[in-house]
Amino acid sequence: MTVDVVPITEADVDAVSDFLSANHDGRVSWSRSLAAVPWEVTAPNRGFMLRDGGRIVGTLLAVYSDRLLGGRVERLCNMGSWCVLPRYRSRSILLLKALLAQDGYSVTVLSPDDGPREILEFFKFRPLDTSASLVPNLPWPRAFGRTRVSADPNVIERTLVGSELVLYRDHAQALAARHLLVQRGIESCYVMYREYRFKGVPLFAMILHVGDQGLFRRSLLPITRHLLLRHGLVATLAERRVIGCAPALSFKLASWPKMYRSATLEPAQIDDLYSELVCVPW
């Protein structure tokens, strides 16, 4: 085999989309997802692909961002879907090496499968603590005082300020991100989540970001009521590192793997934002 590793460019999006639809997940609109990074970033590529002649035989997607973390701008690369045809699996590692050869990036992997996880450990990726809780969304009586929950973009836009407003604007058009604003008196909390689907049907909300952990915890009942009655989601899944606690009315879940490799960032600085989790609805 004569196999080349080359960057995925804008011109390759349609061909890569067709490859992933045929060989990875046909339910995802890959063409939209690959073109759906709505925040401003100078990305070197969309990831890397293996080509045998002119034919794509493997891909490793990447989502890039520039983040202000710990008082300095950090360049992040989120490693996305990794798919290689069976005949070429022995060359899979070439894609990862090409990604990691890019200088100056901290790399996150937020949904690795079992096989890639072992490879990532060899390349010095470290695990994140993803202990989580599952909260049933119940139709609680509407008796929550002054607490209001809204998904209205206009309400969110005119209420948020500072870094939370920037975060919302960066993700407002991301295909997999959903947004809520919780208000109680003069307090407000921006919540970002994605929907987990089973056989194409939205099943539960996965919390990706909470702007005010204290208000989120105090407003958990109206939030979960809203997710059930307004969006048809029967439960809410939340990692404790995101919401800051294990809610009383919840079930503990075993952690699922998330990993990162960085010379400058600590685990507490790694989150689910600016990643495949907000860009790719599956």
Rank of each mutant, 00 (worst) to 15 (best):
A151S: 15
K199C: 06
K199P: 00
V161L: 11
P222V: 03
E121S: 07
F125M: 12
P116A: 01
G104H: 07
E195N: 10
I93V: 13
Y196A: 09
M206H: 12
A177Y: 01
S133L: 02
L94C: 07
Y196K: 11
V182I: 10
Q102C: 10
V234K: 01
M206C: 05
G145M: 09
V149M: 10
S219Y: 02
F198Y: 12
V161Y: 03
E121D: 06
L128A: 06
P153K: 10
R148K: 14
F216K: 06
Y190T: 12
G162S: 13
H171K: 07
Q173S: 13
L229P: 01
L227P: 00
R225Y: 05
S131D: 13
A143W: 09
R142P: 00
T224N: 08
L128G: 04
T224C: 12
R158T: 14
P116N: 03
L138C: 03
P136F: 03
T224W: 01
D114L: 14
E164I: 02
R126C: 05
S131N: 09
G145V: 04
Y193L: 11
L181G: 01
Q213A: 14
I207Y: 01
I207A: 06
S188W: 09
D152N: 15
S106E: 03
R158Q: 14
L110H: 02
F122I: 12
Y190I: 14
E118C: 06
Y105R: 05
F204G: 02
D103M: 07
R148M: 08
A174W: 06
R169F: 03
Q183F: 01
G145A: 07
D103K: 13
D103P: 05
Q213F: 04
K97F: 08
R142F: 04
P222Q: 02
K124F: 06
L110I: 09
D170K: 04
V107G: 00
L99M: 14
G200C: 11
A172R: 15
S92G: 15
E121G: 10
S188F: 03
G211M: 12
G145I: 03
R194W: 00
A177M: 11
L134V: 09
L138V: 15
G162N: 02
H179F: 04
L120K: 04
K199M: 12
V161W: 00
K199A: 14
G200L: 11
